[in-house]
Amino acid sequence: MASTSTLTAHDLARLIRTTAPHAAADGLGLDVIDGIRFDSDGTHLHAVASDRHTMAVARARLATPGEPFARTVHGPDLAALRAWVDAHHDQAALTLATEAGRLVFDGPRGTLRIPVTDGEKFPDWRLLLHTALADVPAGTPCTRWTSTLWERWQHANSEVSTWHAGGEQPLIVLGTDVIGLQAPHRLRTPALDRADTPADALDTWKTSLGAATVQRLDLADAVPAPRRSTGTAGSTVAEMTEELLRQTLNATSRQFSAPSDDPGAGIAYTLSGVHAWAAYRFLNALVKADPDLAADTVGDLAEQLDDGALGEWAWEAAVEAGHDPQQWADERAQARADKPGTRDKEASGLPQATATTPE
């Protein structure tokens, strides 16, 4: 086992609490970032999390330095780690160490061994921060914000535009039928109210970020977006609109090229096109009536389809709507058992129809 590092339970809990909201959700195809990366340089323990849209890095100075390491604790194991840390008194001394395929946490409440993948890749967070800070003119003063006020904008719209003149000027926020301002935070202690710059930030974090580099890496490019299967809906209104229109055109054009001896194929293409067009019309109407509700609905739908239990969702929805899905299943089974025209086809020697899935 590698040499151990030591820090308090309070510090480890703070690292997890600060970064966990930025980790990618489990099941979205972003396995490399669906957790927290614990990265020790021997002096500080860093916790890093990103979901491709945001990234947060928190650090705590180690009470007992140890050998550098970097391991990622993923979603399900992260919950277990969080519960274990919370069970300790704030000032309890916790030790961290690595062993083959494990990240080992030890404290007064016992030892927790979490499975990890040795050598697992993770976005280069140091290069990401260097790139972002380098894009800001070196002498640009910072503006301080009260972060607890940011949540007040969560119902303004799912997407908003902002402008900021800098310094002590307010942030201008613009959404659909929403416009507003947020004032910057002013420190009460004049001696501490200094103009921090990107150079100051780099100096403060120089032991963690290392030397500057000419290489560049942008957050959106750090982790490739997951490829969706053909059965997965878009996660935004724009993506869903495109897919529904594409499906409508594909289905309605292919109904004319369906096998002439298989009327079921043509019907399947027609129904697919009709349903895609109907979904597009409903979505378009919802966007005009309530853009936020449309965006939330599309996001929920994408998660349901990713879940892979569409039949279960539909069954429960049918019951809640007062229908009897079991009766529908029985009627479908009976129709297959006594399918019209089957005997005539058998007698004439025509090939039997096979199921066709529209593209």
Results as ranks from 00 to 15, higher is better:
Val173Asn: 06
Leu103Ala: 03
Thr357Gly: 00
Glu168Gln: 13
Leu149Ser: 09
Arg336Lys: 11
Arg37Lys: 08
Ala92Tyr: 01
Glu312Ser: 11
Ala23Gly: 05
Asp292Gln: 14
Asp330Gln: 15
Ala335His: 13
Ser3Phe: 07
His74Phe: 10
Thr131Glu: 10
Thr197Ser: 12
Tyr280Glu: 07
Pro115Asp: 01
Arg82Tyr: 03
Asp330Lys: 10
Leu149Gln: 13
Asp290Val: 10
Thr146Glu: 15
Arg336Thr: 00
Arg17Thr: 15
Gly231Pro: 01
Gln304Leu: 14
Trp313Pro: 00
Ala2Phe: 05
His44Thr: 07
Leu127His: 09
Ser158Val: 12
Leu310Gln: 08
Arg17Leu: 10
Gly101Asp: 09
Leu7Gly: 06
Asp344Met: 10
Asn284Gly: 04
Ala79Ile: 04
Phe256Leu: 13
Ser235Ala: 15
Arg188Thr: 13
Thr140Arg: 11
Ala156Glu: 06
His53Ala: 10
Asp135His: 10
Trp328Leu: 15
His164Pro: 02
Ile267Thr: 14
Val319Asp: 02
Thr241Pro: 01
Arg17Met: 04
Gln215Met: 09
Pro351Cys: 01
Gly299Glu: 13
Gly175Lys: 06
Trp153Ser: 12
Leu103Lys: 07
His155Ala: 14
Ala87Gly: 14
Val85Trp: 01
Asp218Lys: 08
Gly166Tyr: 09
Tyr269Trp: 13
Thr236Asn: 04
Lys288Gly: 05
Ala279Ile: 02
Arg254Glu: 15
Asp203Leu: 11
Ala302Phe: 04
Met1Trp: 05
Trp277Gly: 06
Ala24Ile: 06
Ala20Asn: 09
Ser40Gln: 02
Phe122Asp: 01
Ala314Pro: 00
Gly42Ser: 05
Ser260Ile: 12
Asn250His: 13
